[in-house]
């Protein structure tokens, strides 16, 4: 039996063993559970030196002499002091010197704390900026985002110059910029322009429409702002949320929160199922069909 096939089969058995907990807790599962944890802890011990301490501690401390591959890097002998600091953590089991364990812990926590300022500034503030919305429509000639625009001479002329179409042609396209193949054909015949010019014009007009805010968009923006504010309000703890208005507002916040959680749930379900499908692919296709049976048949 080849190494690869053996690997596949053992992987498959381990997978099935762990799945057996779905039926009930049993010895088969318990065996592989302990194998699994043992391997994982063992791997952590291996990785501790090969992936972590060797490069970040030993090599930094000792440095490298110059070779053909590159120049020397000096050794920072001060890194030697880190070993005793780490060892202080083991004092946690001592009643008398237990306080010393807080030195390495304090350093780790201090570093985490110090990084929060920068993280907050770069992460949260752009999102605050993005949450600023226009709450009032800028145009009232249409309730929903219109399909077209009536252009001023000036504007139509500018677009015509850019795209090389006639001013009339531009106006015709601007009436309805939601193109489909039939409409494109018709416009091409009517204006004598080619498809590229028409799409270019339509996009220019779309850009103009995009700058305006229509009633429905303004309502959406208001909903957006209210959702954000009401949920933030729900998580205020320093005062009792009394009063009809405040109570209703935070209640709305709680309900809107559930919309967000629902979305997360829906999207997460996709991943979980995708991973299960991949395991099924591993067991049925890779191991059984392409592994065992092909190997047996060939």
């Amino acid at each position: 039996m080849s190494h690869d096939l053996l690997k596949l089969i053992v992987g498959g058995i381990a997978t099935i063993a762990l799945y057996s907990i779905l039926y009930r807790e049993n010895k088969f599962y318990r065996f592989f559970e302990h194998v699994y944890i043992g391997l994982a802890v063992g791997f952590a011990v291996v990785g501790l030196w090969t992936e972590n301490l060797e490069a970040s501690w030993w090599d930094t401390m000792i440095g490298k002499a110059a070779t053909v591959d590159g120049p020397a890097t000096p050794g920072m002998w001060t890194f030697g002091l880190l070993l005793p600091i780490g060892v202080m953590g083991f004092m946690v089991f001592s009643k008398k010197h237990g306080w010393m364990a807080r030195i390495p812990i304090g350093i780790i926590l201090g570093m985490w704390g110090g990084q929060q300022f920068n993280a907050f500034a770069t992460e949260m503030l752009p999102q605050v900026r993005d949450s600023v919305r226009v709450l009032v429509p800028t145009r009232t000639d249409s309730i929903i985002v219109p399909n077209g625009f009536v252009l001023t001479d000036q504007r139509a002329g500018a677009i015509a110059q850019e795209t090389g179409m006639t001013v009339e042609g531009v106006r015709l396209v601007a009436q309805n910029v939601r193109l489909n193949p039939e409409r494109e054909q018709a416009l091409m015949q009517q204006t004598g322009a080619n498809l590229d010019q028409i799409t270019q014009t339509a996009n220019a007009v779309r850009g103009l429409i995009g700058k305006e805010v229509y009633l429905t968009q303004a309502i959406n923006n208001i909903l957006y702002t209210l959702t954000l504010l009401s949920i933030l309000c729900y998580f205020l703890f320093s005062f009792e949320q009394k009063g009809k208005f405040l109570n209703g507002f935070t209640r709305a916040g709680r309900l809107l929160l559930m919309v967000g959680f629902g979305a997360i749930f829906g999207s997460t379900v996709m991943t979980r199922f995708a991973l299960l499908i991949d395991r099924m692919f591993f067991i049925f296709i890779e191991m059984l069909r392409d592994g065992i049976f092909r190997a047996g048949g060939a």
């Binding site: 972590n52 301490l53 501690w57 890194f79 880190l82 600091i85 953590g89 083991f90 390495p104 780790i108």
Partner: peptide, 12 residues
Amino acid sequence: KILQVIQGILLF
């Protein structure tokens, strides 16, 4: 690196 080394030793 310092953080990593300390965390690494604590893994023991």
